[in-house]
Amino acid sequence: MILELDNVELYFKEKRILNGIYLRAEIGKVTGILGSNGCGKSCILNIIFGTLKPKYKLIRLNNKPVLKPLYKTKRIHFLPQLPITPNNLKLKIAFKLFQVNWNEFTTHFDSFSKYKDFKFYQLSGGERRIVETYILLKSPTDIVLLDEPFSHIAPLYIEKIKSIISEEKQQKIIIITDHLYRDIIETSDNLYLIKDGHSKLVTDVNMLEDYKYLSKSEF
Rank of each mutant, 00 (worst) to 15 (best):
I2S: 14
L3Y: 11
E4N: 12
N7I: 06
F12I: 13
K13D: 15
R16Q: 15
I21M: 10
Y22H: 15
I27L: 12
G28D: 01
K29G: 02
T31V: 11
G40H: 01
S42H: 00
C43G: 01
C43N: 13
L45D: 03
L45T: 00
L45K: 00
I47W: 12
G50P: 06
G50M: 03
R60P: 06
N62A: 13
N63C: 11
V66I: 15
T73K: 13
H77R: 12
L79I: 10
I84Y: 13
P86Q: 02
N87I: 07
N87A: 14
K90D: 08
L91M: 05
K96S: 12
Q99Y: 11
N101R: 01
W102P: 08
N103W: 04
T107P: 03
F109D: 00
K114T: 09
F120Y: 09
S124F: 09
R128S: 15
V131P: 02
V144W: 00
D147S: 04
S151P: 01
S151L: 15
L156D: 08
L156P: 00
Y157C: 07
E159H: 12
I161Q: 06
I164Q: 00
I174C: 05
I175T: 01
I175E: 03
I185D: 05
N190Q: 13
I194N: 01
K195Y: 04
D196K: 07
D196E: 11
K200H: 08
V205H: 03
M207K: 13
M207Q: 15
E209Y: 10
D210W: 07
D210V: 09
L214P: 06
S215N: 12
S217L: 09
S217R: 04
E218P: 11
